[in-house]
Each structure stands twice: as structure tokens, then as C-alpha cells.
Design a binder for these strands. Sequence first.
RNA 1: CGGGGUGUAGCAUAGUGGUAGUGUACUCGGUUUGGGACCGAGCGGUCCGGGUUCGAUUCCCGGCUCCCCGACCA
Length: 420
Amino acid sequence: MRQTTLFTKTQKEAPADEVAKNAQLLIRAGYIYKNMAGAYSFLPLGLRVIENINRIIREEMDAIGGQEVHMPSLQDPELWKKTDRWSDAHVDVWFKSQLQAGGEVGFGWTHEEVVTELMRRFVSSYKDLPLFVYQIQNKFRNEVRAKSGIMRTREFWMKDLYSFCATQEAHDAFHEACADAYMKIFDRLGFGAQTYKTFASGGAFSKVSHEFQTLAEAGEDIVYVSEEKGVAVNEEVLAEADLTELGVTKDELEKRKSIEVGNIFSLGTKFSEALGLHFKDEHGENQPVIMGSYGIGPARAMGTIVDLLSDEKGIVWPASVAPYQVHLVGLNGNDAEIRDYTDGIYSALRKRGVSVLYDDRDARPGEKFADSDLLGMPYRVVVSKRTKEEGMFEVVERSMGETMALTEEALYAKFSNQDT
RNA sequence: CGGGGUGUAGCAUAGUGGUAGUGUACUCGGUUUGGGACCGAGCGGUCCGGGUUCGAUUCCCGGCUCCCCGACCA
């Protein structure tokens, strides 16, 4: 991508109405745009980050047997009345509207009802189970207060997976597999080391659920954590949690702020019974399906990465999610010979399958370096009159700030073999 | 939803009951070219409605907006 054709541009100052670091940096760098409180646009570079995150999530969900679907955002009230989750008295996050043809409609904030009703058409025998379906879709929640940049918005991406099992054993096994998959995802996104599977309150679903909490100063949640033992408990269940079962004492737990980056719930047969999702067991008896739901917010994950990994100069993307692997910064572009030369390097890298953002703008070096730091690609490759004369390329690793000099051959070798 | 704050140009800000200023961004000209250059010339603005007033961006009332604290967060 040539930067001269990219419609977004950076800005020096953060907008006055954003306090959250994630939003300040992402807006300054032109990754996102705030349309209204709790609703952001994802611009070309930002969307590439989201898509990389989604790709990682898909790979890990597919690896544990997930099958991707896409369900509607528009919701039929009748369905939700069956589980008593339509009334504003019971669920206060609904966005609701009127159908012109008459009647009400809601905007989906989760999909247990929808997917359960859908599965009635396809599940009739224990031989059909277990099965796992997921989607990555925009959810709508009428939060009274959107906050913290892209961390808590009224419209947001969500990966929601639903499990359907015949036995509790099968459910437990999948629950465990999904928890492992979540940790793999967070590892690949670059914040696995700070992320804990915690014990949390289960709301209406179950006595105890699990959350994945990433330790971060920008977090809205509080967990009690023993980093040494790798155990964390949410504040709201600390009093009732059985700490001896977890192998820790209260003294070993440290109070920390954290970001909820994922959650998993065991639903039991609450939804299958309410909506009539049954299967025939080996004896021909009707049994309710045992269900679970498992969520991750890709945009929140993106905000978490920015909050945790950025530095005073700007964003630092892990290679796994960076919009481009290489930021090719061309200097001395007013010299036609140098510009042609740099264009050639750009073409050569692309020909080798390297994803490159090419700063081909007619701007001064200082501005280009500052923008490059702000945008945060994993590697910066500087091409200039000087590097051409030396026959070497200046390669800077964004996270470490380390500079190395590579020959053209070494440059291609370094980036051609990368997973992008 | 309770409390507090906020609203001036694309962005960041100053100021005033009487022609609204600065930085940045943008346009044009010139000089520059390895860490957000310099000189000159331009374009561009008071959230909405009502009130007080000869005159309101400023004061008053109402609304909306956005942010923060709390509550909430299946």
C-alpha cells in the first residue's frame, strides 16, 4: 500500500474528548474514527488489524471444531419472550425499534436464543452431537455509559461461540478445550502472558463462570491475582470463592486492574429446555441439549494491545496483528533516481509476498519517522540516498528500537519467509 | 440512571456584551531535506432553540453533545 493513496492521515494531537490511551493513539494514527459515543468507524489500517485478529480467532475456533455461521442482528421479540429476556425489566441493554409492517424488533446483543432455535432444525439425535457454532458479528448493547475508547461501545464486534453437547462430560471437555484455545488466541495476540482465566459471577447462567482477564492499568475490572501461581479471582466472587481449592491463600493474592478480554459460560439446559431443543439418546429418550457460550471482543482485544504494548512514540503492533509487516520509508524522494530505486524495492518486496506500507509521500524525514513510530508496524525499512550508496538497508525493529543494516539479499530473506 | 464538567476552524487552544486570535492541518510561491524545517501569501470557526439587550460567541432559560466519577456490565 502506497501511503500517498491511503486516505487517512495522522494527527499530532489527540482529540480532547478522548482520555483512553487506546482511542487517543488509534485516532491519532488514523486507525479509527469516532462517529458518536460508543460507535467507532474502523478505517483501512484499523480494519486490517481487526481482520488479523479475527483470522487468529477463526483459526483457533476451527481447530477445536467450531463451524462458522452468520446470524441476523434483527431479533424477533417472540423468541426472546420464551426465555423471559425481552422485557426491559430483565434486560436493560436492548436497542428496540418498530417494524413498519407492525410489531417490534430488537437488535441482537447476544445470540443464545437465536442459535438454540436454529438448532432445533438440525439436532434430533445424540449422533448429531456434540457441535459447536460461532460467528463474528456486530452486537448492539444500549449501555448507559460508553467509555474507555473502543473498550466499551454500544456497537461492537463479537465472536460468540455456542456449544451443544449430549453429556456433561462432553460439555466439560469442550469447555476446557475452548479455554485452552482462548489462551492460544491471547498468546498469539501478544498479551497472553498478562492474561488469566478467572473465576467470575455467572449472572443468570450458572453459579460460577470464567472470564479471561488481562492485567492492565487501563482495565475497568478488579481481579485478585497470584502471578506466581497463575491464579486470579474476580473481585465480585472473592468472598464466596473456595481459595483452598485453587491452592492459594488470600494473602498471596494481589489486587490488580484488568480488562475482560473473553468469557465462557456453562448454560446447562436453560435455553434448550425453554426453547425445546432436545435430542434422542441411545435409549430413544428425549433429552435437553447441554449448552455453553463463549465470547471474545475483537475490537476490545485491539484496544488491549494498544494499551499494553504502545510506548511514548506510538503504537507497537505484534507481527500477528499488524496491518502491514514492513513500513518502507522512502527518503530523498525528490531525487528521481532515488525514488525509482525505492519504488523498485517496494515492488521487489511485494513480489516476494511481503506486506508493505510504503511511505512514498513528499515529506521530510522527521515527519516520516514520527509517523512511522506512531503507526507501529513491526519493522521499518529506510531507503535513502545514503542507504543506496552504502548498498545496505536500515531496518529498525519497532518494539525494541534496534537498528540493523542489511544487504538487499538479506532484506528479502528476512521478510520473505515471514508468516503474514 | 445520580453527580460533575464540556462545547470557538479538520484537530488543539486563547479571548471578549461591540470587526474572534494563535498553533497545527490544508492551498499557493520560495528556500530547505536523516527525527514532526523556515519565510511569505491565502482558505476556514463561536452546538441548537428561546430570552435579556441598540447589539449575544460572551449573560439568563431550555435542549442536545461529548468526557469523567459512581451505579450497571448475562
